[in-house]
Design a protein around this nucleic acid. Structure first.
Length: 474
RNA sequence: GCUGGGGUGGCCGAAUGGUUCAGGCGACAGCCUGCAGAGCUGUUAUAUAUGGGUUCAAUUCCCAUCCCCAGCUCCA
């Protein structure tokens, strides 16, 4: 799909409205997305966020934008430190393992990699510099415990993203025990002074011996790679407060400029109608699902097929349905490859342009994937009708195939549909043998061979044009 | 407690102040097929949590109730 005069709209958490998207630089988009904390295998809720961001990026690219995408890897925080201590391995060794796992997972889900994956531990100097600026400008102070805190009372805009009024924040049990060190309970740590629990995880810096707070890495790294103001920042809704609110406070206090123009947040998913939690026994990593034999692309389709701002209920029934839907699309592409009919006299072209307009228009509207998919399935049904009537020529099929591939560059679920490639000689011999059996109307033998091939992952289909086969996708 | 999102057919999910409320999946039937698969057609489907109200007309707007989910200091 090419750049069109139509405009793309996104729901901006900052304004709680759909807004026409205008990048800072024409045709270029800079995106920062909050990545994983690498202390465990990522779960399907994490991947809903990463898949939403993948869809967003792919859509912008398909509309002709040059996208620069940065995703951070949080490799130092309470959880990573605790995890490495538990396993009695150095922090880096511990986090490297989960970084590797993360990249394997996103590959399995056909998520296009970001341009940069900055790690927090590789950007300590940038964070120190940013904290020093905040101290110099009077936004940060050193607490009695030696840690450095951000004074939210100094930043009048605090709360503009989450719409939370700091005065109304519940001073509940979750305020950390070292709160006495801070001037106000809501202030958050920029730099955490070393404590014995941190073990050998610390940096000796101008700020003292310690480690960075969680929020500062995203401010420091996003500005380093994307500039002081950039276009889009994404994450799960849970990040709106405090993480993104704090990022804004840190970044805008330091630069005096607007940090991000569009904030996009995805809703969480439920599993079998409930919040996903280990204690409910409904907590799944991608690896859990793959181990059960599910197709990662079906998982991709499922997590993608619900609008990103809607809570999504993950069920295994839904996953089976997703697999069937993907198969339907793949079968459609296969039929297109095989067709050699008469010309539809322009009918196919009309349907194709309708699809292009509907799919594009839907996606432009805050990534309305549901309606976009409906237009795709409508199209498939109508073209299948023409295929049944033998009214799609090879040239038309090629046109349609091209359009489907353009759409799949956004969806990423169909992939290369393998056509009649050369079969290993022994399998080809079996196919031929079955053909002879069929000609002789020896159905028993023909069916036996078909069953045998199925067990080998080769699915046979008898069509008017002769026997076709394809590899079974798991 | 405060704030916000949501409850649509067997399941998942769009959309909308007004002719029959997308699409996917499932089940059943028909066509096609030696059988199957794929595909098409039909049925399931006079489905909008509940109770009121506004309106010529509501599923859509308003009110109440019930339920689910999230945020309220480091969880996508």
């Amino acid at each position: 799909m090419t750049t069109s005069p139509s405009s793309i709209c996104f729901f901006n958490t900052l304004t709680r409205k759909k807004e026409v998207f205008k990048p800072l630089e024409a045709d270029k988009v800079k995106i920062y997305t909050c990545g994983p904390t690498v202390y465990d295998f990522a779960h399907i809720g994490n991947f809903r966020a990463f898949l939403f961001e993948d869809l967003l990026k792919r859509w912008l690219v398909s509309r002709g934008f040059k996208v620069t995408h940065v995703m951070n890897l949080t490799d130092v925080d309470d959880k990573t430190i605790k995890g490495s201590q538990k396993q009695q391995v150095p922090l880096k060794q511990f986090t490297d393992f989960y970084v590797k796992a993360f990249f394997e997972d996103i590959k399995a889900l056909n998520i296009q990699p970001a341009d940069v994956y900055p790690k927090a531990t590789d950007h300590i100097p940038e964070m120190v510099a940013l904290i020093k600026t905040l101290m110099a400008k009077g936004y940060a102070y050193r607490g009695e415990d030696g840690s450095i805190y951000y004074a939210i009372s100094k930043f009048p805009d605090y709360g503009k993203l989450s719409k939370i009024k700091t005065a109304e924040l519940k001073a509940g049990a979750r305020v950390s025990q070292d709160e006495y060190a801070k001037e106000e309970a809501q202030d958050f740590a920029l730099w955490k002074a070393w404590t014995p629990e941190d073990g050998d995880v610390y940096w000796e810096t101008e700020l003292g011996k310690g480690r960075p707070g969680w929020h500062i890495e995203c401010s420091a790294m996003s500005m380093k790679y994307l500039g002081e103001t950039f276009d889009i920042h994404c994450g799960g809704v849970d990040n709106i407060f405090p993480h993104h609110e704090n990022e804004i406070a840190q970044s805008e206090a330091a630069t005096g400029k607007k940090f991000v123009n569009y904030w996009l947040h995805n809703e969480h998913l439920l599993v079998e109608g409930k919040k996903m939690a280990k204690r409910f026994g409904n907590f799944y990593t991608l690896r859990d699902l793959l181990a059960k034999g599910y197709d990662p692309i079906a998982i991709r389709y499922l997590l993608l097929s619900t609008h990103y701002r809607q809570q999504f209920n993950f069920t295994f029934e839904g996953l089976e349905a997703a697999k069937a839907a993907v198969d339907r699309l793949r079968n459609f592409v296969r039929r297109l490859h095989d067709t050699d009919g008469k010309d539809s006299k322009g009918k196919v072209a009309v349907l194709a342009s309708k699809l292009e307009a509907c799919f594009g228009g839907s996606m432009d509207d805050d990534l309305d994937i549901g309606t976009a998919l409906a237009s795709l399935f409508d199209f498939a049904r109508e073209v299948n009708n023409l295929l049944d009537a033998n009214m799609v020529s090879k040239a038309e099929a090629a046109e349609v195939g091209g359009l489907i591939m353009q759409i799949d560059a956004v969806l990423g679920v169909i992939g290369e549909v393998k056509m009649q490639e050369a079969l290993p000689a022994e399998i080809d011999a079996l196919v031929q043998k079955r053909e002879e059996a069929r000609k002789a109307k020896n159905w028993k033998e023909a069916d036996a061979i078909r069953t045998q091939l199925k067990a080998m992952g080769i699915v046979l289909e008898d069509t008017a044009q002769g026997v076709r086969w394809h590899k079974e996708k798991t």
